[in-house]
C-alpha cells in the first residue's frame, strides 16, 4: 500500500529526492482511469441512496409491488452481452495490438455499443408498455421508482455511449488511435460497472 506508506511519513525529516528523480503518481494507471474510478464511486453513492430511499418509501402502506415484466430479462441479457463484447474487445486489442476499424477488437467494441443502444431501446419499450397498461407514475410509488431507477441508469449509459461514439469516430477516421484504445478500455470498465448496477437494481425491483 504505497498510499498508506506515503501518508505515514515524517516529511520534516527528509530533504532531497529519497524516491528518485521520477515524479510518482499515487496510482500506476492513466489519469482518465483514476477519474473514472472516482466517478464510478460517486455514481455508486447516487444509486445506493436511491436504493435506500426505495426501502424507506416501501415501508409506507400504499406500496403495491410492480410485477416484473419478462422483457426485462431479455434486456438484462443484452446489456450483459454488450459488456462481454467490450471485455473481449479489450482482450483482443491487447493480444493483437491493433484496435483499428474492422479489426476484431474494433468490431467487438462496435457490437458492444450497438447492443447497449438495443438495451436502451428495450428499456424504453418496457416503460412504454407499462405506461400503456396503466402503471403510471402517479398510480403507485413502486411504479414511480421503476421509471426513476431505470431512467437514471440509462442516463449513465448514455454518458458512456458518448465516449464510445467519440472513440468509434476516431477509429473510423484513423486519428488518435492511442486515445481511442484508452477510451475503449475505459468503456469496458464502465460497462461492467453499469452492468453490476443494473443487476442490483433489477434484483431489487424483482424481489420486492
Amino acid at each position: 500500500m504505497s498510499f498508506y506508506r506515503d501518508v505515514t511519513k515524517k516529511p520534516w525529516n527528509t530533504v532531497g529526492l529519497p524516491e528518485g528523480i521520477e515524479p510518482r503518481p499515487a496510482f500506476n494507471m492513466p489519469n482518465e482511469k483514476v477519474a473514472l474510478i472516482f466517478f464510478a464511486t460517486c455514481a455508486s453513492v447516487l444509486f445506493s441512496l436511491l436504493v435506500v430511499s426505495y426501502f424507506i418509501r416501501m415501508t409506507v402502506g400504499d406500496w403495491v409491488p410492480l410485477a416484473t415484466p419478462s422483457m426485462l430479462w431479455v434486456n438484462t441479457g443484452v446489456l450483459a452481452l454488450s459488456s462481454v463484447c467490450f471485455h473481449f474487445a479489450v482482450i483482443q486489442s491487447r493480444k493483437t495490438g491493433t484496435v483499428g476499424f474492422g479489426s476484431s477488437a474494433g468490431i467487438l467494441s462496435l457490437a458492444g455499443g450497438l447492443l447497449a443502444v438495443a438495451f436502451i431501446a428495450g428499456q424504453y419499450s418496457v416503460s412504454a408498455q407499462l405506461l400503456a397498461a396503466g402503471y403510471g407514475l402517479r398510480v403507485n410509488p413502486a411504479n414511480a421508482f421503476f421509471y426513476l431507477l431505470t431512467g437514471i441508469h440509462v442516463i449513465h449509459l448514455l454518458g458512456g455511449l458518448w465516449v464510445w461514439g467519440k472513440a468509434q469516430l476516431r477509429l473510423a477516421l484513423g486519428t488518435d488511435v492511442k486515445d481511442a484504445r484508452l477510451s475503449l478500455e475505459l468503456c469496458a470498465w464502465y460497462w461492467h460497472f453499469l452492468l453490476v448496477i443494473w443487476v442490483v437494481l433489477f434484483y431489487l425491483m424483482a424481489s420486492t
Binding site: V7, R24, P25, A35
Partner: peptide, 18 residues
Amino acid sequence: LNYVTTILQARTRGLTLM
C-alpha cells in the same frame, strides 16, 4: 474529478503526498 486526479497523479518530482 479534475482536482482529485491532478493532486493524486500529476504532482511534480519529489512532491510526495506528505
